[in-house]
C-alpha cells in the first residue's frame, strides 16, 4: 500500500492480535458480499427516494440514462478495480482519458481511418499502463508516485497535441455516438453502454475464471504468500496497470463519443470518481477484497446522486461532492467494522 496506516497501533502485540483475530474468524461467507450488498441497498434506496419524490424518475429511460451518462466511468472503474484489488492505485486514469480523446480527435482530424484510431488509442493507453507497472515493479517506487507522474505526463502530452478543443467530425464516430439501440419498453441506450457492459463481463470473466484473475486476488490478499505459492506475481502486478491503462483508453474513446471532441481539460479529477466508485462499491483499498459488479453499482450510486440533485433543482451541484464524501466515509466505516469483527 502507498501509505501504511500508522494510527492503527493495535492494543495487542502484532502476532497475537492477528492470530486471535484469525482464529475467531468463524463468520460465514456472506461477510465478503456484505459491502456489495450494502452498495446495492444504497443504490436502491437513492433510486427509491428519487422515484417517490419526482414524477418520471422511476422510468426505464432514467435508469438507461444512468448507464449512458456513466458508460466511460464504468469502464474506468473496472480497470481501477483490478489495480485496487492488488493493493495498488492508479491516479493516471483521468489524464489518460483526456489523452485518448485528444489522440482520437487529432488523428481523425488528420484523416486516419476510425479503426486505426481506435487501435492507436488502446495501444497508447495500454503502453502507458505497462510503463507505469514496470517502473512500480522493477524499482519499487510507490504506485502513488509513479501513477501521479503518469497523470502529469498524459495530461502534458494532451497539451503537446493541442491546447484547444478539437471537435470530432468523423462520420463513423458520429454514427456510433448518435446511434441508439431500442430495448423493449421503448428504452434506448447507446453503443457506448453496450461496450461498457461487454467490458464489465470480460472483467468478471477474467477476475473469476482465469488464473490471472485469481492471482490478482491472491496478490491483494498476501503478496508474500502468492509468491511462495509459486504464482506469477510479477506478471499480475504489471498486468493490472496494463488493464487499467487499456480501460482508461477505452473509457477515453467512450468519452470522446459522448463529448464528440478531444480536449486537454476533459476528465479532470475523474480518477477520483473512479476510486470513489470502487470504494463505495465495497472494495478495500488495501487489496484482496472487492468485486467488479460492486464497482459498477458504485458508479450507478454516484450517477443516481447526480441525477437526484439535478432533479431537485433547488439543490446545488456541490452537494454531489459532499454526499459522495459522506458516502465514502460511510463505506470506509462499514469496512472497518467488518474487518474488526473478522
Amino acid at each position: 500500500m502507498v501509505a501504511p496506516e500508522v494510527g492503527a497501533v493495535p492494543a495487542k502485540s502484532p502476532g497475537s492480535a492477528s492470530r486471535s483475530a484469525r482464529s475467531r474468524g468463524r463468520v460465514n461467507v456472506p461477510k465478503r458480499f456484505l459491502p456489495v450488498i450494502a452498495t446495492f441497498v444504497v443504490f436502491v434506496a437513492t433510486f427509491g427516494v428519487g422515484s417517490v419524490r419526482y414524477e418520471g424518475f422511476a422510468s426505464g429511460q432514467v435508469m438507461a440514462n444512468l448507464f449512458i451518462d456513466n458508460a466511460f466511468l464504468i469502464v474506468l472503474a473496472v480497470g481501477m478495480t483490478f489495480v485496487i484489488l492488488t493493493g495498488g492505485i492508479d491516479l493516471s486514469v483521468g489524464s489518460v482519458v483526456a489523452l485518448s480523446t485528444m489522440i482520437a480527435a487529432a488523428a481523425l482530424q488528420a484523416g486516419w481511418p476510425a479503426w486505426l484510431v481506435v487501435i492507436t488509442v488502446l495501444a497508447t493507453g495500454s503502453g502507458l499502463g505497462l510503463a507505469m507497472g514496470w517502473v512500480i515493479h522493477r524499482f519499487g517506487v510507490q504506485p502513488f508516485i509513479v501513477t501521479l507522474a503518469g497523470m502529469f505526463l498524459a495530461r502534458g502530452l494532451c497539451f503537446v497535441i493541442s491546447v484547444e478543443s478539437v471537435s470530432i467530425k468523423d462520420p463513423t464516430f458520429r454514427d456510433l455516438a448518435t446511434g441508439s439501440i431500442e430495448l423493449p419498453g421503448g428504452v434506448t441506450i447507446t453503443y457506448g453502454v453496450v461496450i461498457a457492459l461487454v467490458a464489465v463481463l470480460a472483467a468478471v470473466y477474467v477476475l473469476h475464471l482465469t488464473r490471472f484473475g485469481r492471482t490478482v486476488y491472491a496478490v491483494g490478499g498476501s503478496e508474500t504468500s502468492a509468491r511462495l505459492m509459486g504464482l506469477a506475481t510479477t506478471r499480475v502486478k504489471i498486468g493490472v496497470y496494463v488493464i487499467s491503462g487499456f480501460c482508461s483508453a477505452l473509457g477515453g474513446l467512450l468519452f470522446s463519443l459522448y463529448m464528440l471532441s478531444g480536449y486537454s481539460l476533459h476528465a479532470v479529477g475523474m480518477e477520483l470518481d473512479a476510486i470513489a466508485a470502487v470504494v463505495v462499491g465495497g472494495s478495500l483499498l488495501s487489496g484482496g477484497v472487492g468485486f467488479v459488479i460492486g464497482s459498477v453499482v458504485g458508479v450507478l450510486v454516484l450517477g443516481t446522486i447526480q441525477t437526484l440533485i439535478s432533479f431537485e433543482g433547488t439543490l446545488s451541484s456541490w452537494w454531489t461532492k459532499i454526499v459522495i464524501g459522506a458516502l465514502l466515509l460511510a463505506f470506509i466505516a462499514l469496512q472497518r467494522i467488518i474487518v474488526r469483527r473478522t
Binding site: M1, V2, A3, P4, E5, V6, G7, A8, V9, I89, F144, L272, I275, A276, V279, L285, S286, S316, S317, W318, W319, T320, K321, I322, V323, I324, G325, A326, L328, L329, I332, A333, R336
Partner: peptide, 29 residues
C-alpha cells in the same frame, strides 16, 4: 487516522472529495 485507524490515503480522500463541495457551499458556487 489515529483514533479510527483508517489508512491515511482513504481517510483524507473523504475530505478531498467533500472539501471542495464544502467550499462551494460556503461561496454558494
Amino acid at each position: 487516522v489515529s483514533v479510527l485507524g483508517i489508512q491515511p490515503i482513504i481517510a483524507t480522500l473523504v475530505l478531498m472529495t467533500a472539501g471542495r463541495g464544502i467550499a462551494m457551499l460556503i461561496t454558494e458556487g
